[in-house]
Design a protein around this nucleic acid. Sequence first.
DNA 1: GAGACCGACGTTTTT
DNA 2: CGTCGGTCTC
Length: 652
Amino acid sequence: MPNPHDHRLPSAPGHRKIDYRAELNPAQYRAVTTTEGPVLVIAGAGSGKTRTLVYRLAYLVDQGVDPGAILLLTFTRKAAREMLGRAAELMDQPLTQVTGGTFHSVCYLWLRRYGGLLGYGDGFTVMDRDDQGHLLALLKEQLGLKTVQGPFPRKDTVADILGAVVNKRLTLEGVLRDYPQFLPQLRHLDAIAKAYDEEKRRLNLMDFDDLLVQGARLLTEHEEVRRALSERYRYLMVDEYQDTNHLQAELVRLLAYTHHNVMAVGDDCQSIYSFRGANFRNIMDFPALFPGARLIKLEENYRSTQPVLELANAMMVEAREQYTKCLFSRRPDGLKPRLFRPASENEQSRLVVAQVQELRRQGLPLRQMAVLFRAGYHSFDLEIELVRQAIPFMKFGGFKFMESAHIKDLLSYLRVVANPRDTLSWTRLLSLIPGVGRRTCARLTGQMGDGFTLKEARSLLQGQRQAGLKELAGVLEELAGPSQTMVARLNRALEHYEPLMAGRFDDYPKRAKDLEHLLTITARYKELRSFLNDLTLDPPASMADITGVAHDYLTLSTVHSAKGLEWEAVFIIWAAEGRFPVFTMQEREDDTEEERRLMYVAVTRAKRHLAIIFPAAGYNRSLGYTANSPSRFIAGLPRKLLEPWRVEVERG
DNA sequence: GAGACCGACGTTTTT
DNA sequence: CGTCGGTCTC
């Protein structure tokens, strides 16, 4: 049992002695050294939040805490990896024993181990958003709801609605208040919801929400598990607490029930995930969850210059609700943020390219620059321009590489081997075979009952008249071979899939290349199920994530994906009404306020150079060419905070 | 029963 | 503009 009051330092070779008091400011120091009991850290943008977490990891270990007793919960798995890496570097000592990851990924690990207690068979697999949609469409058909009167939500909307029920702790009726046009379908949606839950069970599948729901259920209903995990993880740290929902808060409460050693870190101004059930007020409820929680505020900003910060603060002054803190900077010098109004989208793109080139000439590497936008498609025109000018870039957010059809097709071979009850993947796989369509799929999957095994599946396929199905049975037999490496398996699937793919996609060569690249990340996996579930829980954000990239590149990112990151120079494009805030978020005040926080997050990513850009005219599908107004978050700002710049772009 | 075709529609963020 | 879902033809 680690004793936190034992001040002996571990004598690991090469371990560096850290002077915590000298390397942290007083508030950070308090956050790092308050190791016992609940602590809430309100950490403003750029206030050294990550630094604080990293030092606290080191401090705990320095205090003699067993690294295996530390659980670090972050918003992405990448964030956890980076923090653990930095702490290890700081200490000059590996920290492999610390558990770090997202709520979803740790719940997955626990459910894998204890899922049997909740009636989950061995080998459940995790479904992504796309699978959810397919299953919901299937159920809609099975329930005979294809012919119902009146407007009916599409499958993605149904998924949104059901997700809101779980994540926002609402009734179906409550959620439908936001979708009044679908209120008449309440009964049908309720039927779909029930069927959806049953069907996931039957297919041995969990969706993202199930991981949290079942994880919380596991801890609630099984005292022995709750105790075991609580006693194992004696030190909890939760990052980005403002973006957690009630399920995640409940998980924290359950995990900490034997010791209450929880540090939650977050910033109410940066809550941008309400669509996932997060509420910026949740962070204020932390003291109610853990009475006696100490509150520490980090208000000194180390990232941005004063002019950038003034703009950010001014933006929040206009917010409907006042937030908990005000940022100040020790970097008083600096350039005023600039506002640009190019004539069109393409001029916006060329303007960004020109500015990037100029900064580059001044010696700033591309890695220190980012272009941020509200939605993935906002950067399409810019991407074309960057390719034309041969500027290397990497894009984050928006398009989901792992959900593209060819990737999912290829993985379906492996998914049915990993979980033969997964009739969703069976449907996908069987449909690839020429001569097999909707009916044949339905007939075959209909014969796949409970406890269905791969061996039974193979003999079922063998008995079909289509030669393609017989051949597939052979491929699956090879894939299931116990001694196969992951690379060999994926290769075998690819060998079978490639000729089928050729007929399906016009851009077949490009997609074939994607699949080859996918092979390269396969090598580090030994077990099939871990491989598949890892890809679902922590998908590569882009092709570049897989292939590795040039050492220097410009970042293009959605604001959501830019959370927690920083650059010397930031360009915010499409800062126009209808784009940012997006049209759909202009109706309700809550939504607009979240868009404001999103703009705040975007602005506070900049260290020194900040440019905000909106094209004067834009093309809109329904309206044709229209004039744009600047984003309301920009238009209302005091003039002195922004340098308005005329744009001259040479005609090209 | 498979698969091509056509018209309507809505358009965001992510584990 | 691209996707989705429904219909028509082979």
